[in-house]
Design a protein around this nucleic acid. Structure first.
Lengths: 111, 111
DNA sequence: TATAAAGTTAACTTGTAGGTTAACTTTATA
DNA sequence: TATAAAGTTAACCTACAAGTTAACTTTATA
């Protein structure tokens, strides 16, 4: 079964990925886990701002977090990026279409 | 060279993909090219509404179009989906991280 | 135990995405 | 040649994303 364009999970994942700052966070976390404050400092964002981004990433299950004392550690979540990738990959067979193909299609339609 | 999280082109592509209706359009077009009116009808959207989606997809270079008389034909554009895919694929090596890894990291940090 | 650190939550502002209706242009057809 | 089809453009509305500041909670430390 291939993943549908209207899957709610795909929706939250792609919405999370659509934001540049959140992609920056993902990039950061791909190197190593970090705390909320560290992420805020690297992204040059206030704590409330980073907090919202983290919640968005968390709801999309793109990250996991764990509280240790007063410190929140965040890590990239393995599998979820694969969801977006597999949606995109469905269309790899269509990747051949280009200007020539379209011209061709138009000619056929106009017969 | 790998593609950066803050690339403007990646930005427009992922923003275009973040919308469910636009993903529906892409799915439609993966089957065959279509006219603007056909896409509007399938997505159950008005012409002005579909027009905006198409412009967004076009600016992201996810589609190409060609005018034939008064009719606008639209087709999925080959290569651009690959851009999003390759950004995501950069992080495939990080996909291993999970709860155990995070716990581990936290322990190390607290030593 | 008072103070600081690390987040969270609430209330607010601003910009923009995604839709609408109405008016218009260009091309085809009865 | 008048009318309809296929889009486009403009002006508008509404909801929400992304930031802010201020107030708060919880946990650690001097």
């Amino acid at each position: 079964m291939s993943i549908s364009y209207d899957s709610p999970q795909l929706d939250s994942v792609l919405e999370a990925l659509a934001n540049q700052k959140r992609r920056g966070i993902i990039h950061d976390l791909s190197l190593q886990p970090a705390t909320v404050t560290q992420l805020a400092s690297r992204a040059r964002l206030s704590l409330p701002a980073i907090h919202k981004h983290i919640r968005s990433l968390e709801q999309a299950q793109l990250i996991i977090r764990k509280k240790a004392g007063r410190t929140n550690f965040v890590a990239l979540n393995g599998s979820t990026l694969g969801l977006a990738q597999s949606w995109i990959m469905q269309y790899q067979t269509s990747w051949g279409s280009n200007k020539a193909t379209l011209d061709n299609y138009i000619s056929k339609m106009q017969e």
